[in-house]
Design a protein around this nucleic acid. Structure first.
Lengths: 316, 316
DNA sequence: TTGAAAGCGCTAACAA
DNA sequence: TTGTTAGCGCTTTCAA
């Protein structure tokens, strides 16, 4: 028994002859080691958890790929939990994962209250956040430069003469808060007054974007829209087309994220690109780093964003 | 200790008072049960594995969602393995999963040789296939009606007067074999001779579709293209646009799968829809069914496909 | 270099 | 209704 273990784990102290015999027996008996027993004894599962708000959103795929590739390099596999946009479900998954089912996990764009995250951190189970910073807790975070990206987008519109710029917010998410704050700040910097009439909220989905645009059109006039993400921007674009509003001639539209769809829609969507793959890769790297070490350095990594000009803003 | 277990597993034989005390102690000590120990002892992990050819393909997302939702209903979670289009990696994952890390798994569109799948089945670990049938083994499979879908697509083109219809194949996949065979059969049924010049292969990706179209154009003339999947159809569409070929006026294009992008490209892609969510849901249901039971019924489920006519075929 | 034995944290059978 | 005990399959001393 002990010798088999040594053979399977590549220990040096086995003679070539016994190793042979063991391997042969394994083959003959179709023996497969029991992962649970191994994990129980060795206190390692070589599994990482990922809690994702919604797997059905293309946006998260590249991110996932970044995590996965990085994990694989260290012989880790992923258990992916789809919270389906519910923070209750997030919390349940967190519990599931921290029952030593995985060695550590990554939480993407969580909606959990700060206190919940802080509590989790206090319990000492290793995890890393993507797209969220919690100041009151010892956690590492990987985020993108929302402010700089949003500023580039709004400044681009202003520079090309747009004055009445609407903003379609998402639903209560830090990313959205930062982008919105930047929108207001940039307007102010250019001597444009902020008009609350120009703001509506959507659910970060196409449908949400379409509805938000409709509500905006009923309230007031404007010549450009900045949406908190691409899905909503694309929804708004479609709604505009339905209403006979030409994009970008009658209405300029700019998004955020640069999802794959953005360059496929017509006109191509001008948007803020973020390094989605990198975001995932960095998070996994950071997590794996902490797993080995006694002494953990918590940090916040901010990745760059950049405006990609296509046709939907009319400034190409 | 035993009482704690009883409380956590909802056993009846605990008095309200002790239950209270136990729960309080759990809270106080921040006790979390160890999933590995539990799995070792109870021989259940409440985890299902999914081996997917490539997570980065949108096509698999809906499928995944179907699996996930069904699994969740039975309190199962998913561990997702991305084979990155390598059958070697598939085999490795299979080994990983069958080491009692999960209670069963689902393999999507596997490229593994038949013998490998049959061997796996012989070992008795529970799994279900999606998109692949292996006659020589005791396995359940969920597949779509490739023949009927492909026939609808080709017949539609022929009915609208197209005579030289090119076919862009994928890379050595049973789905592709069936679709291609149907393409030839339908041509024959309509008195059109099969011209090998009209066939090229791509990698099931946009890039692959674009390149295949280019090679076709260099060889011969044709007025319609049927691609083995939507990604390649969309790649071909883009390549056509680059070359100044109008779709559908100069070239009709039809795809297969009805991915989300298909209705967003301009012109909208005519394609064969398949119930992707159902495919996943059925597979998960079938797998969960076998887990409980002693007596397993192996079966092959075929789900319907249906042509969705948009603009790219010019027959709208 | 190999084998024997202890124990990881849990559940289930049994005893109290 | 509660506590005691054995054992799931592995790794890791320790002894041979």
């Amino acid at each position: 028994m002990a010798t088999v273990s040594r053979v399977l784990n590549g220990s040096e102290k086995v003679s070539a002859a016994t190793r042979q015999r063991v391997l042969q027996a394994i083959e003959q008996l179709q023996y497969t080691p029991n992962a649970s027993a191994k994990a129980l004894r060795s206190r390692r599962t070589t599994l990482l958890g990922v809690v994702i708000p919604a797997v059905s959103s293309i946006y998260y795929l590249e991110l996932l790929k970044g995590i996965e590739n990085t994990a694989i390099e260290s012989d880790y596999n992923l258990i992916i939990c789809d919270a389906q946009n519910s923070s209750l479900r997030e919390i349940e998954y967190m519990k599931l994962l921290s029952s030593r089912r995985v060695d550590g996990f990554i939480i993407i764009n969580t909606l959990m209250p700060e206190e919940e995250v802080a509590g989790l951190a206090r319990r000492g189970f290793p995890f890393v956040l993507i797209g969220r910073v919690v100041k009151s807790a010892n956690v590492s975070s990987i985020v993108v430069a929302n402010r700089s990206g949003a500023a580039q987008a709004v400044e681009h519109l202003i520079r090309h003469g747009y004055k009445r710029i609407a903003y379609i917010r998402g639903m209560f998410h830090p990313d959205d808060e930062e982008r919105f704050a930047t929108y207001r700040k940039v307007l102010a910097e250019h001597g444009l007054s902020f008009d609350p009439q120009l703001v509506e909220r959507g659910h970060f989905t196409e449908e949400g974007g379409a509805q938000a645009l409709q509500r905006l059109l009923q309230k007031t006039e404007f010549s450009a829209v900045f949406a908190a993400n691409d899905e909503m921007a694309i929804g708004a674009m479609e709604k505009a087309r339905q209403l006979g509003i030409r994009v970008p001639e009658d209405l300029a539209i700019v998004g955020f994220d640069n999802i794959r769809l953005a360059r496929h829609v017509v006109p191509g969507l001008t948007t803020v690109d973020m390094p989605k793959y990198q975001l995932g890769a960095m998070a996994a790297k950071k997590l794996l780093e902490t797993l080995g070490n006694e002494h953990i350095v918590y940090e916040r990594v901010v990745l760059k964003t950049e405006l990609v000009v296509r046709q939907s803003c009319g400034c190409g």
